[in-house]
Every structure is written in C-alpha cells, then in structure tokens.
Amino acid sequence: MSDSKILVSAPPHIQSELGTKNIMWMVAAALTPAAVASLLFFSWRALVIIGISVFSALLTEALCELMMKRPLTVSDGSAFVTGLLLALTLPPTVPWWIPALGSAFAIAVGKQVFGGLGHNLFNPALIGRAFLVLSWPLLMTTWQWPTSSLSWAGTQMDAVSGATALGLLKEGFFSNNSLSLPYLQMFYGNISGSLGETSGLALLLGAVFLLVYKIIDWRIPLAYLGTVLVLTTLWGQDPLFHLLAGGLILGAFFMATDYVTTPVTSGGRVIFGIGCGLLTALIRRFGGYPEGVCYSILIMNAITPLLDRLTVPKRFGEVKKDG
C-alpha cells in the first residue's frame, strides 16, 4: 500500500475511449479514400499538393503556438485534417505555393487568431479556400480532366484542360444537350474538378465510416443534401447531377459537419443543413460562381452561435413559466 498511489478524483471514474485526438485522426482516415482517388485520377501531382498543404498546416500551427507561447497541439490531428481538407478542394493544376499559402492562411487566420482549436467561428479549410479563390481566381479555376501524364516542369497548358461539370452547366452546355456526363463516371470521380471532390464513391466510403462510428451526426448532411435535391428538382434541374457534381458530397459530410463551427443542438443542425442546401442551390442557380458549397457553409458558420441560442432544447420536466 505504502508505495502505491491511489487516485482520488471526482466521478465519473470511467471515460469513453474516444478522445479528441482519436476523432481527428478518424476524420483523416475517412478522407483517405478520397485522397487515394485523387492520386489515381490526377497522378502524383495530387500527392504533392496534399503533402505541401498538410505540411504547411502543421508548420503554421506550430509556429503560431510557439509565437504565442501556447502548448503545441500539432499532434492532435486537427491541423492535419485542415491541411488535408484544403488540399482536396484545390484544382490539380495549381502551382506548389498555392497549397502552402492556403493552408498557412487557413491555420493562422482561420483558426489561431481566434484562439486555436475550439474557438474559431469559421471552418479553417474553407477560409483558406475562400482566400485563395478571391486572391488568385484564375489559378483556382483552371481545371483539367484526369490524366496520368502531368509534370511540374511542363507548363499547365500541357494538361488536358477542361471545365468542371458545374462550370459547363453554368455556361449553358447542358441545356441544349451538347454535352452530358454519365452518372457512373461522375460517381467514380473520373471527371474534371478539385482533387478530392470528384469521387462520390470514395467520399461516401469515408462518410459511412464516420456515421457508423458516430463521429458525425447524420442530420446536417441529410438536411443539406435533401434540400439541394428538393430545390433542384423543383427548378426542373437534374438533382442527381447536382449531387454528384462539384464539392457537395465533400462539403456536406466533411465540412458542414465540422464540430467547432456548426451547431450542437439537433434542431440547430437541421436548420444549419437546410440553410447550407438552400444557399448552395441558390448560388449554383443564380450566383456568379458555378459552385456555392464553400460560401454556403461559411455563411452558415457565421450564424451558428445564433442557431445554438435559438434551438435550446426543452429540458426534461421543464414547465412553461406563466406570462
């Protein structure tokens, strides 16, 4: 007895095995199929972009924390996930400094200035992407069709360039049936688009993993996707096309479910999902951009605190106060 140390602590004395770190790395694991798909479709260039983005995110996190004399949290996986997510939203043609700068901005301005993990208002990866789109619109909208012969040495013109499916829709290509894409090809992801957004199959594999392990709540993705499907159907557009094109699946399952920047209440989550869906559909139909996932989620991030406050659930046994 004498040399043993007996812990005295407040209850509960057991805890679930799922810690913050596990959750972050599980999200990273869930994104792996999409990362692998990007490698298959866009060759090793995808790997380099992902690598630079992740490295830049981790480095920026460490530098910020060193500067602010805060404990280092690089190993908690959250910066890794931010870097990975941002990379997956980039076109495969971007020069190397784009992911480096984007991730640095995402971590420094999107997360650390707010106080680090848990305190940021906006999804850091999307902040990084929005920054890049606003600053270098051309680089961020130069697309290519999947190919396996692409090198950093060659100019980007060497690549087989091609607009994204949503870009084509915006420019009116599909209205006169001059071009259409088979659903199956879109589902596999063998189309033009950002690195990790093209393969619905790979993304859904990861999403199912997160849903089964209850890492993410089904409410936001379901409300999000459902709203887009309903609205595009009402407008006489092809709902399945809208589901598979662009970053909707990536956004709905991996960005709109970010814990820190989305509501905690069930009601708030449903409204959040519907709001994202509404904004995405509106931007795609009426906006200047072909795609609206990024800005939809960022706008809804901004009203998350309000949603939490408006949807405080009724307590068990709560009695309505008179007057």
Binding site: L117, G118, D217, Y259, V260, P313, F316
Partner: peptide
Amino acid sequence: CIRCGKCVDACPFNLL
C-alpha cells in the same frame, strides 16, 4: 471543448 455535441446527445435531462 471542440463542440462535438456528444454531451448534448447524452444528457438525459436535455441540458446543453
């Protein structure tokens, strides 16, 4: 707190 909401889903008294 990372606002995961697991506590909200757990609380039998519907607290936050």
